[in-house]
Design a protein around this nucleic acid. Structure first.
Lengths: 228, 228
DNA sequence: GTGATCTAAATTGTATACAATATTGTGATT
DNA sequence: AATCACAATATTGTATACAATTTAGATCAC
């Protein structure tokens, strides 16, 4: 877990760093990601930056506008709904599969995620808490041992993070924690039916807790603010 | 359909060209895709080729091995099953949505796809027929007006094409056509229930028609053949 | 002062050059 | 003859240079 040796470099590393920044809402929808700028920050050439941006673009975390550059994505209301519809197709059934193959170790892992989430909330790191809350969902997909579906869910949760940045109303993700606790309970009992049902309503709760009528966060820079 | 004006260039174009070649089974699982080679074929620099390969890699159509190069992907049996499980989660419900919003125009479009598929079969272009059969599924996702899910399905169908190349037993895709006809009938009646059910069993049929115990096609080169 | 037009700067798109790594071929040694 | 070591070759990884495009600023007309 330590990085004394600067093994940075590689486009992968850069992409993950940017992705984390987006998840923790340090990078805000609409922000311009200049290539030279990133190149300096990470100490690699634009070639690497470009590869990273392409990867992020493919996951819909940023938008690549030809000859204009890269911008943190700003999902529309329609896209927000689409993302949660896709999650509703994938995650409940995945939660069921996970429940059926759940081991003691898996439950501990999930519990750790929740604990870390609580710690972050207590420390006022709401961005990090949100990120960890996403990891909880991804961990479930991993446990279900469905790499393909897990990859889709991972992307959807990344995009959900952007959606939450734009449309979230009440920021204290406390209600979430409750849902996650209930899920763990179902997992403990290896109750697939209940896990599926809980995940289904959890996702509905999430979607309905969004205010899809007005965007929240102001664009990044003053410049952007005045333009859009 | 003609390319008098060489508007090629752009990584997108190259990626689509390679993807088509994979879909039509002109490029076979395991084949090496050398950068210089592709660079010559498409008359662009390796920079462009590299971007295209990265994109294809993200869709799991090729595998990028560090310092080794790009190879047409060879989905394992486990991956094949995963892909069809993911399709089973996404496509039946999508077929239902499509049925409910289906217009006259949409039905004509789907009918065109089937006709083209038949033409290809009659001309012995089994590769192209398979490709068109995939487009039929993608068209349904488009009609359902769910871009996010459609993107996932598109990737899954691409990967299915590789899976079929590796594990398909009876190549005459006639049984498929029947399933597609039945689906169109359900669409005509805007019968969501039936569309969902038909798609579900269609996917099961597809999976069970694979022979997952032995790989079919021989690897590209003699070299590869002796190595794996 | 407002708006349009042109010029200069900055940014992205592409190609090429160089470095690092893997592959292949050759030859020495057993 | 087979195997290992090393050199030569080929291929990929990364950085940089140049071209194309967009953006910003200044100038001019109204």
């Amino acid at each position: 877990m330590k990085d004394t040796q600067v093994k940075s470099g590689s486009a992968e590393y850069v992409a993950e760093a940017i992705e984390l920044a987006i998840h923790e809402h340090r990078l805000i929808p609409g922000m311009k990601l200049g290539e030279d700028e990133l190149s300096e920050v990470y100490g690699v050439s634009r070639t690497i930056i470009r590869a990273a941006l392409q990867s992020l673009s493919h996951n819909r975390l940023i938008e690549l506008k030809r000859n204009r550059g890269a911008f943190v994505a700003q999902p529309s209301v329609a896209e927000a709904i689409e993302v949660f519809e896709a999650r509703s197709l994938l995650e409940p059934r995945t939660a069921r599969s996970a429940a059926e193959r759940m081991t003691e170790q898996d439950i501990l892992s999930l519990q750790n995620h929740i604990d870390a989430e609580h710690t972050a909330i207590d420390n006022g790191e709401s961005g990090r808490a949100l990120y960890l809350s996403g990891l909880f969902h991804i961990e479930i997909a991993r446990i279900a041992d469905q790499k393909t579906i897990a990859a889709f869910i991972t992307q959807l949760i990344s995009r959900s993070s952007l959606i939450i940045a734009l449309y979230w109303e009440r920021r204290a993700a406390l209600c979430e924690s409750h849902a996650h606790h209930a899920l763990i309970e179902a997992f403990r009992n290896q109750d697939g039916d209940q896990a599926e049902e809980l995940m289904k309503s959890h996702l509905i709760d999430l979607l309905t807790s969004l205010d899809l009528r007005s965007r929240k966060s102001a664009p990044s820079s003053l410049h952007e603010a005045l333009k859009s």
